[in-house]
Amino acid sequence: MDRLARTLHEDRGAVTTQLVVFFPLLILTGLLAVQFALAWHAQHIAQYIAQDALAAARPQHASAAIGQAQARHRINTLAGRILASPQVSVTRSATRVRARVTGGVLQAVPVLKLRASGAAEGPVERVTQPEDDQP
């Protein structure tokens, strides 16, 4: 009986020690899961904004400024705080349009700084006639 009492007495506080070690790791794991979910969401927002800017700048009589304005409008309505300090670049040549959106991700874990970006590229739309219809 003395041996059982001594064993029980020696195990006192073991659960508290385990919780002190385990609980911060559990919190950190949860915060990391939230951080990567925010990064995934920010990546999708950036990609959508880039595609929308491309769609606005592609028509024949559009310009890169129209695509830039569309991207800024989408950032104001969709990105909120998830896409921090977004930067938009829309370039248009005679045949191609390129749109790129980059920004930081809202931080849930202070030491982890992630970035999200989206890019889209496509041809400039032109109205043409089929060769058969020309005189």
Rank of each mutant, 00 (worst) to 15 (best):
D11F: 12
V101N: 07
S93K: 06
V21D: 00
Q87D: 07
Q70P: 15
H41D: 05
L8E: 07
I66R: 12
A57Y: 04
S85Y: 08
R98M: 15
P86R: 06
T29R: 00
A50T: 02
A62D: 13
G103L: 00
S93H: 08
R72I: 14
Q68F: 11
W40A: 02
P110M: 06
L28R: 01
R100Y: 10
L28S: 05
L32G: 06
A62R: 04
Q60N: 03
Q68D: 11
V90T: 04
T91K: 11
R98T: 15
S89C: 04
A69Y: 10
L106P: 08
S89A: 09
A57S: 03
R96Q: 12
Q60F: 07
V20Q: 09
S63I: 02
L8S: 08
A57Q: 09
Q60T: 05
A94K: 08
T16I: 15
P59C: 01
V90F: 01
L31T: 01
L54K: 06
V105I: 11
G30E: 00
V97C: 04
L32I: 03
I75H: 01
S93L: 05
K113V: 05
V97N: 03
V97S: 04
G104S: 08
T102P: 13
A55P: 10
H41G: 02
I27S: 04
G103S: 02
A33E: 06
T77P: 07
D52A: 11
Q35C: 07
A14S: 13
L32H: 02
A62F: 10
A71G: 05
L8W: 13
R81W: 09
G13L: 00
A65M: 14
A62C: 03
L38H: 04
T7V: 15
